[in-house]
Design a binder for these strands. Sequence first.
DNA 1: GTAATTTCGTACCGTTTCGTACATTTATAA
DNA 2: TTATAAATGTACGAAACGGTACGAAATTAC
Lengths: 203, 203
Amino acid sequence: MSDLKPKRGRPASIDADAAMDIMVELFRNKGFAAVSLDDLSSATGLSRPSLYRAFGNKVQMYVGAMDAFGVQVAKEAAPKLFETDDVQVSLTRFFDAMLEIYFRDSEVTPGCLVFGTAPSAAEEAAVQERLQFGIEQTDNLMRSRFKQSAPNSDADQIQIAVELASNTLIAFSARAKGGASRAELSEVGANGARAIATVLAQP
Amino acid sequence: MSDLKPKRGRPASIDADAAMDIMVELFRNKGFAAVSLDDLSSATGLSRPSLYRAFGNKVQMYVGAMDAFGVQVAKEAAPKLFETDDVQVSLTRFFDAMLEIYFRDSEVTPGCLVFGTAPSAAEEAAVQERLQFGIEQTDNLMRSRFKQSAPNSDADQIQIAVELASNTLIAFSARAKGGASRAELSEVGANGARAIATVLAQP
DNA sequence: GTAATTTCGTACCGTTTCGTACATTTATAA
DNA sequence: TTATAAATGTACGAAACGGTACGAAATTAC
C-alpha cells in the first residue's frame, strides 16, 4: 500500500522514518527530559508542528523512539545469538552487536535508549510499560537461546543464566555513561559470556 | 567544632542534613531533570534561595545528593559483605540491604540514585565523574571481598566475579523502574550470588 | 478555473523553569 | 543604643519549555 491512491490534498514532503531514526539517536544520547522539542526540530529539520502531526506529543515521540529502537535491536543484534551452536561465542557476539548500537554516532554519551534513559522517565506509564516489555523481551530472548543449547538443563539453572545475561546487558549502559570504553565493555561482555557458559555447564 | 564560637549574625535555623536526606529521596525517585527546585523547596520546607545558599545550584544539589547517597550505602549496606565468611550468603545479604535502600519511602518508583538516575544526567561532567566513581567503588568493594574469601584464586576469575556482582546490582534499578517487585529482585540477587559462588569455586 | 482537501511552517500563548536582588529579621560587638 | 554581620524569604526577571491557532502552499476533484 504505497501510492496507489494519490491522496486528495497536499502531498507529504517529510520522511517520518528518517526523522524517527534521528530522534532515537538524540533520546538515546541525552535521555527524555534533556531533549527539547526544539532540539528534535532542528536535528530532524522538521518544524515543531510537523513533529506533532507525525508523532504526537513529546512522550509519544519518546515511546515511539523506544519502539523503533526495539525493532533495531531485533533486526541487528538478536540474530547474532543464533548463528552459532556455542553459547559463549554467540553471547559474546550478541553483546558486541549491542555495543555497536550503543556507541553508534555517539562517542560522547553512548548507551541504551531503553535500559539507559528510560528508568529516569518511568514516571510516565507508557514508558514504564515499555521498559518492562524490553526487559521481558531480553529475558525471553536469552531463555529461548539457552534452552536450545541445553535442552536438558533444569529450569533453575537456565533462569540464573538468563538473569546473568540480561543483567550484563543492562549494566552496559550505566558503565558506558560512566566513561567505560567500548573495548572495556566488550571485555565485560566476554567475561559475562564465559561465566554464563560455566553456569550452564554445571552438573 | 560545634558552637564554641557563637557566630556574629543571625543564627542559621536550617537543618542542612535533614534537607539533604529529603533531596536524596526526591532525586532517587524521579531523577535529576524531573525534579524542579520548587519540588525540592516544598519538600524540604526551605525557600529556593536557602537551597542555593546551602547547596549551590541544581547540579550541585544533585551531585551533593549523589555523595550523600554514597555515604548512606557505605554505612548501611557495604558492611553486610564482611559479616560472614560465606561469599554467597554475604552477597545475598548485601543485595538485600541495597534493595532496602532502593525501595525506602518509594513503593512507586524505587531504584538507585547513582545507577538508576545518573546515566540520564551524565552530560554534566560532575555527574559523569561521580557515576564513574560509584561504579569503581562498587567494583573495588567486590574485589576486596572476593580476594579475602579466595586469596589463591587467579585474578581473571576474581575479575569476572567482580563484574557479575556489580552488574547484578546495577541491573536492579532498571528492573525496579520496569516494575519488578522487591521480592523478585531479591530472588535475582540470590541467583546472582549463587552464580558468583559457582564461578569463584571453579578449579 | 474554482472548490475541496491536506500539508506545512510562522508566530504566538501560557506555564514553568532556574537563578537572584533586595529588604527584613535576628543575632553579636562596641 | 547604635553599628555590624549573617540568615532568610518575597518578589522579580529572563529565558526556555510544550503545545497550538491559523494562514500560506500544494495537490486533487469537479
